[in-house]
């Protein structure tokens, strides 16, 4: 036997070059919108608002990207976890109003972090129950998944109404997150900058886990050939339950952020954004974290620019965006899963 060798670090097969065009799309959209908006300060305000909105949409979408994009579970109940996140966040912020209104950044940050953690944990626990009761019995059957998860969404919404009431609820952001910073004549809301930061952290975390860890390898392999992964000694059932729970937790996190972004909402907050989330995932390409982020940023930017320049077509702007992207790339911006 020859001497042991270490694993090689180079390959004769050139690595597939990164497809930069979709990455550049948000920038291209922003540049194209400039002449439509006219005023550079208004354009800057709209751009930051669009990016922040996109980041929050990414946070609420990333969970479904895992569950639908990777696991092929058509979860129409994803909005339930968003609504839960928003209401649990509210349930933490309301009794801690003194901390919310305090002038201390530390207390404001603590109450904000508590709300985020509570939203994530409750959504995760409910996600686990949701998976056991509603998803596992209909695994692999899309039609039944739609029926079961839609039913689950209705049940969670009604439970929220029973606990917190049907009326619109409203609450304030922690004091330090209110208001804006002025950049010239552009007003950049503080909360939107925080949303950009948290969204970026979620994106990097997801990307690292999926591409740099053994769990990520197992998820990617299991999505492609679950049977082979089992024949290699891995229990995919536990793995996929974990992915579903993480998806629900991400929706809970996004729900808290989305609720704080809107500041006024009802129990339908999740159902209302469900369609938008599917649009983002379809634009991004099934199972692609980067595609999901770009899709969400495009939706956020387009909504803001169109809402300002042509309010009459604002309602259709997301559908129009999806149509244009799919005409260009029928599988979405990046395709990870062949389906």
């Amino acid at each position: 036997m020859s001497n042991p060798v270490t694993a090689p670090t180079t390959s004769d097969i050139p690595r597939q070059p990164l497809d930069w065009l979709p990455v550049a799309l948000p920038l291209m959209v922003a540049i194209a919108a400039f002449p439509l908006v006219g005023n550079p300060w208004t354009w800057l305000t709209l751009t930051v608002a669009g990016l922040a909105m996109g980041m929050i949409i990414f946070m609420v979408s990333s969970g479904l990207m895992l569950v639908f994009g990777l696991m092929d579970v058509l979860n129409f109940g994803h909005g339930a976890f968003i609504a839960l996140g928003a209401y649990v966040g509210l349930a933490v912020l309301m009794p801690l109003t003194p901390w919310v209104e305090a002038t201390s950044v530390l207390l404001n940050s603590a109450v904000f972090a508590l709300a985020l953690c509570a939203g994530v944990i409750v959504a995760g626990v409910v996600g686990f129950v949701f998976d056991r009761l509603l998803i596992q019995p209909v695994y692999g059957n899309h039609l039944k998944q739609i029926l079961m998860t839609t039913g689950g969404l209705i049940i969670v919404e009604q439970l929220i109404r029973a606990i917190w009431g049907s009326e619109t609820v409203s609450f304030n952001l922690p004091a330090s997150l209110r208001g804006s910073w002025l950049l010239g004549e552009a007003a950049v809301e503080r909360y939107r900058i925080v949303a950009l930061g948290i969204g970026s952290a979620v994106f990097l975390g997801l990307l690292l886990v999926l591409t740099r860890t053994r769990i990520g390898l197992m998820i990617r392999a299991g999505v492609e050939n679950r049977e082979m992964l089992e024949a290699m000694g891995y229990r995919t059932r536990h793995l996929f339950v974990g992915v579903f729970v993480v998806g629900a937790m991400l929706a809970g996190l996004g729900g808290v952020m989305w609720g704080l972004y809107l500041q006024n909402f009802t129990a339908s907050i999740g159902a209302q954004i469900n369609v938008l989330i599917f649009i983002v995932i379809i634009i991004g390409g099934l199972g692609s974290t980067t595609g999901c982020l770009i899709g969400a940023l495009l939706v956020g930017l387009t909504s803001n620019y169109v809402g300002f320049a042509a309010p009459k077509i604002a309602l259709f702007s997301n559908i129009l965006l999806m149509l244009l992207i799919l005409l260009w790339r029928p599988q979405g911006l990046y395709r990870v899963v062949d389906r």
Partner: peptide, 9 residues
């Protein structure tokens, strides 16, 4: 030789 290449290729 193809250590870092995508298996699909």
């Amino acid at each position: 030789r193809f250590w870092l290449g995508r298996a699909g290729t």
